[in-house]
């Protein structure tokens, strides 16, 4: 049995402590240790974005981050997107715009889009396409995903005081 490391971190606003092997990725820790299976694995080598999470405010592929690296960090996953008052506007727009077919890429796209809108509340179509270029979707051809992100940006604009 390999030596295990103790990691304390903030996941979706909750203080969490877990034990992991040094070789385990953040993706494995989320899915296998913390049972947060909303974050998906499509390639495990940083080329599909299905595992996208927001780490200390930055969009990352969680398969490329070691679990031990998130000691003291803040991690946001798809499970934390909806609040007690309802869905995040991005989630709502994805549903309304039919921006998912199989849905396996959806958590990653939602997190990538959130990272974009956190930074740029009014992105152009070109900016949205650029920010989502690290996330593969094989079902939709991206059309409805891009529209959903633009639609969510509009919704959030209206909601802002």
């Amino acid at each position: 049995m390999l030596e295990r490391l103790r990691v304390q971190t903030l996941v979706n606003g909750e203080e969490i402590e877990f034990l992991c092997e040094p070789r385990q990725s953040l993706l494995e820790a989320l899915r296998d240790i913390l049972k947060l299976t909303g974050t998906k694995e499509g390639c495990n080598d940083g080329n599909c974005g299905a595992c996208s999470v927001i780490l200390n405010g930055r969009l990352v592929d969680s398969c490329l981050v070691l679990a031990a690296e998130v000691q003291g960090a803040t991690v946001e996953t798809v499970e934390g997107l909806a609040g007690p008052t309802g869905l995040h506007p991005l989630q709502q727009s994805f549903l309304e715009q039919a921006a998912l077919q199989c849905g396996i890429c959806t958590p990653g796209f939602l997190m990538a889009a959130k990272a974009l809108l956190d930074r740029e509340p009014h992105p152009s179509e070109a900016r949205v396409r650029l920010w989502l270029a690290g996330n593969l979707c094989r079902c939709t051809g991206y059309d409805k995903i891009v529209r959903a992100v633009l639609d969510a940006a509009d919704k959030m604009e209206v909601a802002r005081p």
């Binding site: 909303g38 998906k40 996953t77 998912l100």
Partner: peptide, 13 residues
């Protein structure tokens, strides 16, 4: 859709 945008839908893995 709700399960799929909240990460609750269970896929094979």
């Amino acid at each position: 859709g709700m399960d799929k945008v909240t990460g609750r839908a269970l896929y094979g893995a």
